[in-house]
Design a protein around this nucleic acid. Structure first.
Lengths: 307, 307
DNA sequence: GTGAAAGCGCTAACAG
DNA sequence: CTGTTAGCGCTTTCAC
């Protein structure tokens, strides 16, 4: 059983490989006789031809691959997985629509190896949960010209596009926190990115003892017992469900960052966002991919509004 | 700024591309002078050389890519995403350990396009939630010799390795269902694979009116109101959480298929499995990859035991 | 309208 | 111990 290659089709049709390539790729600046085109198409279908993208990548110098690089340990907490679940799905679906394939790759937060970008000649990269320090150190190593989009991280570098939720709006304009700061405590998701955590903490009108950054169910429980009599605002549905084990869910307002608000008990208050991070990220990335113009302008930081 | 290729290193070191390749790949059946080896290694590091895997794939006829092909629509239900979240993470981590990269790809359940396998010359494939009918039709088109592992699907074809949970054990030996069939109703996850659903339904000692296959929260609610006075056994933590909105969670036993049992209210009974589907699937796949011997023997169906 | 030829970056005999 | 050579499968310029 012979391998089905361009050359094979060329042989069987009695034309050259070039011609076959022209036809199969609908090359516009070439003009092909209708009947040869038909014959080529026929035998291609008959043989079940499928192009070898590795070969194509080699010559076109682009792989058609996008990398989703996620900073997370081998045993990631379930609430972290929850928060990425939706993101992954949205990104994958959206990219497929546009003919790209998605490679998923976890990065060791402490010593992330980014070789995959160069090895696979990724056309674009979405980085999730990036640690500021490491990122700066590393961004040097980025093959130049590869569009990079950063999700769930506040990187103090105008060279990168960034996508995140608008926490300011969610906390200060969608909850009564601003009006009644003394009634509330807040539980934050454990983003790797310290800058993002600091940014959020700073905009909360609360003293530190009423803010908890998620680390474990046990610590969460301890924190909650100290917050008796207060209402809670919790980021991430998964964390909210853990909290609901130790406090009454009527007292909870949940900032729904995982796209799975249905999981919440109905007594809890849910704050949703208008768009999915994944979809926004891909839209933005595709735009970068299109404008091969990689202007060194300052890049946007897109904050997704709450509903 | 010149591209860093093997050839470039060869030029700078004053040796041939072949020698560089030998050194960089630690080819054993060649013997290289210690100092040239050192010089090559040095300039490679100095230049920040990273191999181009597309080029390598082309000549070695293997891509180092594994495909995770998931049968799911563009807008998958949150409980479906939940069930895949853990799986994806485990698979990715395990594969990376062994030097493979993971491509994630959703398949349209009704007309799955498997071209990606041939296009990307995937070294192996894990198919999730395969529909029996389509699968048979399609398995013909599989490039021959590519190891295929099927998850969460009962495919009546001994040609494929399959991994799933041992539902028989979970339902009949870990719950009191067998002893008290009249006390229970059951809610099943909406696997695409009809054979799997039928298999599970058949082993339940319950009439159809006490079995519900998840379709929507609204339908679930309707079903639950008809089951007053019974206890429930529910597959998938996400679905259990929905159910908990409409019935008391003390009455629920949850077969935890998503690896996120912590999300459940503490009153619910949780049944866990000993291993993760992802890890088992990858272990099995790696074995297939190693034994290039693709014997046409009957393949195993691995059922993961409950704890 | 079509084809010859060069080359993308790498590997693997086979010589020397 | 090292280099020459011949591709892997595809695209693309340039000539016919």
């Amino acid at each position: 059983l012979k391998k089905v290659t361009l050359k094979e089709i060329a042989l069987q049709t009695g034309v050259s490989a070039a011609t076959v390539s022209y036809v199969l790729n609908n090359v516009t600046n070439q003009t092909i006789a209708e009947d040869t085109r038909a014959r080529i198409l026929d035998t291609a279908k008959a043989l079940g031809y499928v192009p070898n993208l590795a070969a194509r990548s080699l010559v076109k110098q682009q792989s058609g691959l996008i990398g989703l690089l996620i900073n997370q340990p081998a045993h990631a907490s379930h609430w972290r997985l929850l928060r990425h679940s939706d993101l992954i799905h949205d990104i994958e679906i959206e990219l497929n629509k546009h003919g790209y394939h998605l490679i998923i790759h976890s990065l060791d937060a402490t010593s992330p190896k980014l070789d995959i970008i160069a090895e696979r000649k990724l056309d674009g990269v979405i980085v999730v949960d990036a640690i500021g320090d490491h990122f700066h150190h590393i961004s040097q190593h980025f093959p130049h010209g590869v569009p990079v989009l950063i999700v769930d991280s506040l990187i103090n570098d105008p060279l990168f596009y960034q996508v995140m939720f608008d926490y300011e709006e969610a906390f200060l304009r969608k909850t009564p926190l601003k009006e009644h700061p003394n009634d509330y405590y807040v539980v934050l998701d454990d983003y790797n990115n310290q800058e993002l955590l600091a940014h959020i903490s700073n905009l909360l009108p609360l003293p530190d003892e009423h803010i908890y950054i998620m680390s474990s169910e046990l610590e969460l429980q301890k924190f909650l017992t100290k917050q008796q009599g207060r209402k809670g605002i919790i980021v991430n549905e998964g964390i909210a469900l853990l909290a609901a084990k130790y406090t009454s869910s009527e007292l909870l307002t949940v900032i729904c960052t995982t796209g799975m608000s249905e999981l919440l008990p109905p007594q809890a208050q849910a704050i949703l966002f208008k768009e999915s991070k994944g979809t926004v990220a891909v839209t933005q990335l595709l735009q970068l991919l299109a404008n091969s113009v990689s202007d060194i302008n300052h890049k946007q930081t897109i904050k997704i509004e709450a509903e």
